[in-house]
Design a protein around this nucleic acid. Sequence first.
RNA 1: UGUCCGAUGGUGUAAUGGUAGCACUUAUGAUUUUGGUUCAUACAGUCAAGGUUCGAAUCCUUGUCGGACAACCA
Length: 561
Amino acid sequence: MEEKATKSLNFIEEIVEKDLESGKVKSVVTRFPPEPNGYLHIGHAKAICLDFGLAEKYKGKCNLRFDDTNPVKEDVEYIDSIKEDIQWLGFSWGDREYYASDYFGKLMDFAIELIRRGLAYVDDQTSEEIAQQKGTPTEAGKESPFRNRSVEENLDLFQRMNAGEFDEGCRVLRAKIDMTSSNMHLRDPIIYRIIKRSHHRTGDKWNVYPMYDFAHGQSDYFEGVTHSCCTLEFIPHRPLYNWLVDQLKEGEYRPNQYEFNRLNLTYTVMSKRKLLQLVEEKYVDGWDDPRMPTISGLRRRGYTSDSIRNFVDTIGYTKYLALNDFGLLENAVREDLNKTATRVMGVLDPVKLIITNYPEGQVEELETVNNPEKPEEGSRNIPFSRELYIERNDFMEDPPKKFFRLGPGREVRLKSAYIIKCEDFKKNEETGEIEEIYCTYDPETKSGSGISRKVKGTLHWVSSEHAFDAEVKLYDRLFTDENPDGHKDKSFLDFLNTDSLKILKGCKLEPGLKDAKPGDRFQFTRLGYFTVDKKDFIQGKPVFVRTVTLKDSWAKLSKKQ
RNA sequence: UGUCCGAUGGUGUAAUGGUAGCACUUAUGAUUUUGGUUCAUACAGUCAAGGUUCGAAUCCUUGUCGGACAACCA
């Protein structure tokens, strides 16, 4: 029997296993808590894989909980996209779709209880005054003049805040903790503020809304969450999280917060605010633009959910900052698509090639393998004729030694067809453009005939009469800098790649591709992986999006020279 | 001049006091009707200095460097 190499655990899995073994928790409950104020990006995918993955691995549960405590920023339109993305990644929250707003009543009760215990007070100051008293990371804060109001007055004021008697910004409810704490979050944090805005779920029921810190840990507690995972920047919030849970909890049970490093990728930005800016200022074509690092963008680009999950799996979870190479993600999708994508032929930059000794009007159906990695997927026929298209850069008038393609007097194989020899070509003397290439073919060397000889190169091609014209979109990275966010004096927008989308028209594709459907994925032989764009799809007129190129050692070689 | 978190090849991660390993990248070669895939080989790392120990990437001390924290955002 073969022993399976056990993959080492990440530090959170270790904690979970320890807690399970010691009996500290009976079963794992996690939660994924998106704020419905934007689309999910691949950084969220990392969190989703952890939260849902933990539940899956240890046979626990993961709740989906929308963190909807701020009606100013949030919108229902985002809720559907978030759910779609999680499902597409292959995870399920069952019937546990929750909202922080489900707990507004309980949170209000808890706030009132804190006031009664003298642990919360209403502050009448402006946000500027409060900010000033807050101190700085190196200087202690000062106590608010309203800090020691009577319980009765606090109760009355808070109730009137919620009744709508005061304008936004006039008063807040603060927890009474410690203005001299070295942790800024413990300096009497604001826990409720007045917002007179309709909430997508609770309508106009409330005039006050809890802050994140006052909602998150308590929601975890209400749901019986055991392991509450978030990113590193919440480390300083943990003492507040614990303080609040301590005030709230009745028995032994408590949720615990653990922090892991967020995902950063080279050549992109990952903050929702910046992604929103790219969308609103129309630098991209929407949240699902194939250049965006959003889940919907990657999906439209042709990424598979498996490739994203594999990628997340390889980058891991640690406690220190990382900037992951975008190439790693590309590698993950190549690895997946190499196994699954049907090989087809398409010529993106066509030049006509005429086989002078091939009978005019003759058409042959040639057999070609669908996927050499999966022989069980069989083969199909493609038409071959006297006039073909090949890729313009597969011909050179005066090729260097290491160019294994077509040039005067040179022989190459046409994939799944014949060996051809270049006899002549026609060049436009004014523009220098090659207009036609003339070849002869060797009928003996038909693919599969068993008769062949060594030729250096194999080219892809399509029959000109049978090809259909299509539009192909080539996307490149959105930014020219590895870390567009990492410059003090410059905005990430200064590094926008102005050449990140090329639209090719009149590409010549093999006839079967005419029926391709949105979401179909192919490998265009020798070029890369392509998918059919979902957006504005018209039956019979598919537009192809390049997911990623194939690795290209020739491009590397020729660049070096 | 605060508090907290962290530091392992170019990048991302393992090793939980006992042989520093893996993936990607890079380089070279083999196979190949995709300059793809696959396979083989090579390059390359424990932030620094002390200490504890038979033995330290791991524990302790000090330093260095990086990051987070001063929204009525999450």
